[in-house]
């Protein structure tokens, strides 16, 4: 006769449960410490009302529009130059940081450089550059180049470390030299991902370039900051709306660039595909409804 043993299908994980409870208690305690309470929030709302009321309608007078256009143009220029220089430098640095291609005496210096570039926020780097080279766009460009290197090189190195060694081995077996192996065995495997990182970097550089002006590193951020200080909230609103518009256009543009490189699409195809995708979506939605 067999003895019936109570079998447990799902073993309780007590340490995980305790960890969740501890985390919940800590969050409540920390919120109390920082006066993060509902009543404090409600007190602040009257302020927000005044602030929002003064923001509308946004001030798009000719003189202000000129300032916005000038500031945005400078921001875009900073972003484009910083992205291109940053991407160009990231390609070799990322390659050098890939452990599956390079000996460790190359990898570790490259990784150290990336780590230094990643340590600080763009605004902090911008402050350093402003102190080092003075106010203006050059400080902004320098700051964003450093930030781009930290970001793309790291992701690029990781992408290279994930490639299929078989394809590389086959190219090497033909007697190809190191650079030919890179061009034929490695780059085809990572290039589309590299483009993805690069276009994402451009996106984020554009956003950062609207902000670094606050510390005097050029671009629209300077106007935004002084408008805040002058309580010129309707101008602040105009600037914010313009930045939103710029980011949306940039997003669309970088999507298009990715599609262009990945699938060799022409501009016309890109729009046609979007239209087709929309039609398919609508069709399936209609079929689902019927």
């Amino acid at each position: 006769m067999t003895v019936a043993v109570a079998r447990v299908a799902f073993k309780p994980n007590w340490s995980a449960r305790i960890a969740w409870v501890v985390l919940a208690i800590y969050v409540v305690w920390a919120a109390g410490q920082l006066d993060f309470t509902w009543s404090r929030f409600v007190d602040g709302l009257s302020n927000a009302q005044k602030f929002l009321g003064r923001m509308f309608p946004p001030n798009f007078s000719t003189e202000k529009v000129e300032m916005i256009v000038k500031g945005l143009t400078e921001s875009i220029q900073i972003a484009i130059i910083a992205s291109i220089v940053g991407i160009a430098l990231s390609l070799p640095i990322g390659l050098m940081a890939a452990r599956n291609l390079m000996p460790s005496w190359v990898v570790w210096p490259a990784r150290a450089l990336i780590a230094v570039c990643r340590s600080f926020h763009e605004v902090v780097i911008a402050i350093i550059f402003v102190k080092a080279v003075g106010f203006g766009a050059i400080a902004g460009i320098g700051a964003l180049v450093v930030g781009s290197i930290g970001f793309i090189s790291k992701l690029f190195a990781e992408a290279i470390e994930e490639i299929s060694p078989k394809q590389v081995e086959a190219v090497r077996a033909t007697g190809a030299g190191f650079f030919s192996v890179l061009v034929y065995g490695v780059m085809p495997q990572v290039f589309s991902r590299f483009l993805g990182f690069a276009s994402y970097t451009f996106d984020s550089n554009l956003r950062h370039s609207t902000m670094i002006g606050i510390v005097g590193a050029g671009g629209i951020g300077g106007s935004l900051f002084s408008a805040f200080q002058r309580f010129d909230y309707d101008f602040v609103c105009a600037i914010l709306l313009s930045i939103i518009g710029l980011i949306i256009i940039a997003e669309w543009f970088s999507n298009y660039v990715r599609a262009l490189f990945n699938d060799n699409l022409a501009l016309v195809d890109y729009f046609r595909n979007r239209r087709n995708a929309r039609l398919t979506r609508e069709k399936s939605a209609a079929m689902g409804a019927s």
Partner: peptide, 14 residues
């Protein structure tokens, strides 16, 4: 020295 591989080892995106 030419070589033919078990899993072909073509560079897929080329």
């Amino acid at each position: 020295i030419g070589m033919v591989f078990q899993e072909y080892n073509l560079v897929e995106r080329l």
